[in-house]
Amino acid sequence: MPKAFSVTVNGAQVDATEDMTALAAILLSGTTTLRRSVSGEQRGALCGMGVCFECRVTINGEHHCRSCQIRCAQEMDIRTDE
């Protein structure tokens, strides 16, 4: 079994494993809007495979991270850019 720990999504604790992507953790937290588009629309993930860049969030302070390509790690701090 993959190791279980928790990550923080917009300040809330979410149970995660290292097999999970940051995107899955965000969606499990009940958040569906990942970012605001350049004209202010709410956006969620689209391609799930790292090409569309709709799932960009801030991870450990770094902006524009593709949450679908990044695996959860202990103490990861994820912020959606709502």
Binding site: A16, M20, T21, A24, L46, C47, G48
Partner: peptide, 19 residues
């Protein structure tokens, strides 16, 4: 462009990765 409109493969990938 609404959230939760995803690619078919995209949704599958997200489910495979823990959603």
């Amino acid at each position: 462009t609404l959230p939760n409109v995803m690619g078919a493969g995209g949704l599958q990938a997200v489910v495979k990765s823990g959603m």
